[in-house]
Design a protein around this nucleic acid. Structure first.
Lengths: 93, 93
DNA sequence: CGACTTTACGGGTCGCGTAAGTATA
DNA sequence: TATACTTACGCGACCCGTAAAGTCG
């Protein structure tokens, strides 16, 4: 699993559409489709139900989405905090 | 930034030693050293102080370590939850 | 039929491992 | 000189983009 896969997954989940997610991510549709498939393969669970109109989150997908967002948020915060030297909520001597 | 870089960073932070971290990670030392350098370069902040006896966390490194552990924990939980189909704290019909 | 997703294929990039180099007490 | 980190180099794997194929209401 990679951070890129998690980003792609969130984008597809939010748009319900691989093509639209790809546009937002500024990459081609097959790249997004492949990484979603690879992610599902690694997890062993489908994250979406495929319909002729797009992608619909499965039960496992809904669960995964929460964690995926948390991961991306934490990564963003980690970057900001490390760069600014700010402490993360705890006081260290 | 990649999940591998975060894993390597945590391993080095916990061992205080690139070589030992590499052994734990079952990869060669240069691989670990390079990813740490690349991570520091991306953040623009040194995460460790280099000493003749190993690597010592910098202030930024200590801050980053908290977030790094959270990220890895969330990723682990995401996998487990998605595979088991368990809900993440919310009740859905 | 129509919109969407998936597979095939070629090229560029990234990461690892081995080996050599650098630095400090 | 001993220990640990860093750079050089060659190779394999991964990812992307374009193009073609498959799927389902």
């Amino acid at each position: 699993m990679s951070l890129a896969q998690i980003e792609y997954f969130v984008a597809v989940a939010e748009t319900g559409n691989v093509g639209r997610a790809a546009t937002i991510l500024r990459i081609a549709q097959p790249a997004v489709s492949r990484q979603i498939l690879r992610l599902e393969d690694e997890l062993g669970v489908p994250l979406f139900h495929r319909t002729p109109r797009g992608m619909d989150l499965s039960a496992a997908g809904k669960v995964f989405l929460r964690r995926a967002r948390t991961v991306l948020d934490e990564v963003r915060e980690a970057k900001v905090e490390a760069r600014s030297g700010r402490l993360g909520g705890a006081l260290l001597p």
